[in-house]
Every structure is written in C-alpha cells, then in structure tokens.
Simulated scan of single mutants.
Amino acid sequence: MDFFINDALAQSGGQPGAGLTGLIFPIALIVIFYFLLIRPQQKRAKEHKKLVQNLSKGDEVLTNGGLVGRISDVGDTYANVSLAEGVEVRLQKSAVAQVLPKGAMKAGLDKADAGGKDDTGKGDASK
C-alpha cells in the first residue's frame, strides 16, 4: 500500500503562483469585513463622541437606559439630568444615546397623559 502514497506525493509538484491564489480569499474577507463592519462602527463612534462633547445645559436627552430628561448641569465626564420635578440623576455623559428635539419631552408626556385613561384613571377605557 505504500506505493499509492508515493505516487500521490510525486504528482503534487509545485505549481507557480499557488501561494498568491491562496492569499486572495483571506485578503478579500478582510476587505469585506472592513467595509461592512469596522468602518461603519468607527463612524458611529465618532458621531457619538461629537454628540457627547456638544452636550449643554437645557438639552433634552435619551439615555442608554431609556430615561428621558433635561440636562441641568454638565461637567467634564458627568451630567445631571432632571427626569421630573424634584427628580435628578447624575450619569456619565457617554451614557447619553441621543439628543432629542426641543419640546419632545413635554410632548411625549402630554400624549401619554391624554391617551388610554378611563374615568377612574386606572387604565385603558377600551379594555
């Protein structure tokens, strides 16, 4: 049975350019990953950094935790956010997901208060 192995090894002779052909697929994968994953992530990170640097007092923000509030004080790394009358939290500026348009917080509260309450104020009247 050794004679089959020797024949197989003898036929595999060196082909010119086989090393270059073997590198095309991994290089193509790296290029695809760069344009589909790495570059867009870097762009989002740059936009978020710019957003965090431009935070100012009075901005209405949405945090990563889902809280909506108005910035009452801004420091280098932390910001105080007023969620409601007398309710204020301190959070890292990097925890801000987006800055909302002016008046979005008030409009959202009015919409939530107006819709879905029955006469007792305990739930949806249609249920």
Rank of each mutant, 00 (worst) to 15 (best):
F3P: 05
I5K: 13
I5P: 05
I5V: 06
I5R: 15
I5E: 15
N6K: 14
N6D: 12
L9W: 11
L9T: 09
L9F: 04
S12G: 11
G13V: 00
G13L: 01
G14D: 10
G17C: 05
G22L: 05
G22Y: 01
L23K: 10
I24W: 07
I24N: 00
F25V: 14
P26R: 04
A28P: 01
I30W: 09
I32K: 05
L36F: 09
L37K: 10
P40D: 08
P40Q: 14
P40W: 09
Q41A: 09
Q42P: 06
Q42N: 14
K43E: 12
A45I: 09
K46S: 10
E47G: 00
K49T: 12
K49F: 15
K50G: 05
V52K: 10
Q53W: 04
N54F: 00
N54C: 02
L55G: 07
K57V: 15
G58R: 02
G58M: 04
D59G: 04
L62S: 09
N64P: 03
N64T: 14
G66P: 12
V68F: 10
R70C: 07
S72V: 13
V74R: 14
G75W: 02
T77E: 06
T77P: 07
Y78Q: 11
A79G: 04
N80G: 00
V81T: 00
S82H: 13
E85I: 02
E85F: 12
G86K: 00
V87E: 10
V87A: 09
E88D: 15
V89F: 00
A95E: 12
A97P: 01
Q98M: 14
V99F: 02
L100C: 04
L100M: 07
L100H: 04
G103A: 01
G103Q: 06
M105V: 12
K106Y: 13
K106F: 11
A107D: 05
D110T: 15
K111H: 10
K111D: 14
G116M: 03
T120M: 07
T120Q: 11
D124F: 10
A125M: 03
A125W: 13
